[in-house]
Design a protein around this nucleic acid. Sequence first.
DNA 1: ATATTTGTCTGACTAGAGTCAGACGAATGG
DNA 2: CCATTCGTCTGACTCTAGTCAGACAAATAT
Lengths: 304, 304
Amino acid sequence: MESTAVLRRFNRTYTQRIGALDESFLGLGMPLASARLLFEIGGAQPVTVQDLRARLGLDSGYLSRLLRGLESRRLVELSPDPADRRRRVAALTESGARLLTDLDDRSDALATRLLEPLSERQRARLAEALATADLLVRAATLEFEVVDPASPNARLAMGHYFAELDRRFEGGFDPGPLTEADLATMRPPGGTFVLARSDGEVVACGGVQSLGEGVGEVKRMWVHDGWRGAGLGARMLRRLEDDAAALGHTVVRLDTNATLTDAIALYERSGYASVARYNDNPYAQRWFEKPLSAPAASTRRPRG
Amino acid sequence: MESTAVLRRFNRTYTQRIGALDESFLGLGMPLASARLLFEIGGAQPVTVQDLRARLGLDSGYLSRLLRGLESRRLVELSPDPADRRRRVAALTESGARLLTDLDDRSDALATRLLEPLSERQRARLAEALATADLLVRAATLEFEVVDPASPNARLAMGHYFAELDRRFEGGFDPGPLTEADLATMRPPGGTFVLARSDGEVVACGGVQSLGEGVGEVKRMWVHDGWRGAGLGARMLRRLEDDAAALGHTVVRLDTNATLTDAIALYERSGYASVARYNDNPYAQRWFEKPLSAPAASTRRPRG
DNA sequence: ATATTTGTCTGACTAGAGTCAGACGAATGG
DNA sequence: CCATTCGTCTGACTCTAGTCAGACAAATAT
């Protein structure tokens, strides 16, 4: 069966069998929107109203009303943010925390009840299938965005990248201090820096810098551990190539360490050819290059 | 991760990423409830209002209003059922059919858009995972029900069963006429007949008859082809054993044909032991028996 | 210091989705 | 043929989940 058909069939099954149950149960005693709000507040304790609005995608007036509802039932407490007294931060009260645990238990009980008719083996199969689907659905709905390499999220992502290299290289890895000059290479006109985020969490990154007339270099490409197997590396690489082409590069290079076999496999799969050493990076043992086709100025859409 | 946790995580991902998109798109131009109703009418053309109510689980007043809405927009036509003029049957008009195609296309486009960022391979992986999840979620939400073996659905199920035997036995299979006496064996006090249904469709069946003081026999056990691999056979067998025990039997027997290797494997997995021929069924080559533990009168819950 | 922007809140609406209590004609059981 | 049941419809509600237009105070820009 075609994959769109499978998706649509599943969608029907799902909304009929699970969605409906979920909504009727979860909300028991309170509207669904309030319950969701409570969950969201409980997730990352003191959270600003602004944050909640962004995460739940609610109208400010509506959210305000919902909050006041929870406040009047003494489930949450709002107080001005000392750092910016226009902002208000929400936190659960004790009874709010208790209710949240309660809702959580109820949701758990519902899930258990739903799975109950299945055998242990089938439950495991279902869990595996859902985990796969979860990963891929998240991957399909990722957001790529160009950010300044000096922004907090970009620094965070590069931090993950360096930490991973340090773990994987035999003698460890020392990036040295992250200088402003270094960051500046990944800004226009010759460079760029791209993040992939899911639910606000940074899950992948990558940069491009210019090596001179028409030559770009892919740098700092990293994918979150929990996101391996979703083709994120390939998508990020494609995205960086597209961006490099848009910046006027006609060829991209990259270097890598011989221990990063998965990355090397990705480069080879993606049409990169081994070339001779083109820099003096002491951590690099392999160098690659790939010609870029010129971006079709008007028809080109950013992929991924 | 525990399977309930996986289910819950998936649930969140799903409602956030797909559910929301779906609802906003599908309904474009009309409320979701109307769109769903249109889909349902389009599914099995002339359909009674009663049927729609059952399938969508709607209040009769509400459904009536929704139907009138569609009728006033000339999307459906209602006419009294000639067989019972209290009933009304709904059918799409031409423009209704056109709109349905339109909604269908839109839904398809949405699914395609959602899958677009994934590679061919990942799409296939996702489709496989969703198909597995679909099967298991459906299996988990099946409804078992005791019905009279002479009821239309029971006859239908046994028809499937006989047809399958006819396909699988080398020399074919001739059940002979389905006599009232034969059916009566699968009624209380000593017998029963159980159906499993999903979305109204019969997907499995099985019966028990009495072979005399305390001995029950499992008969006519059948599982729909599309439902293999969901453990439905094992669940039906367990259910029949429970019911047999509740009817006072202390042991169950069954016979089977040597070509039905999957069934034989199921019996052996389920604790059945080979015994000598106990009947003169010309199609049987293997005979099995299993002792039943007495039902704990109060604590016993029907399983599955 | 003043104007503008930002973050939150209030009031006044709307649409969707559904519930509940009957009304009414058609079918059915005795 | 009469009472009851069944299938559908109408009217009068309710609750959720929003939207939109301001109001107002705190922060920031000029």
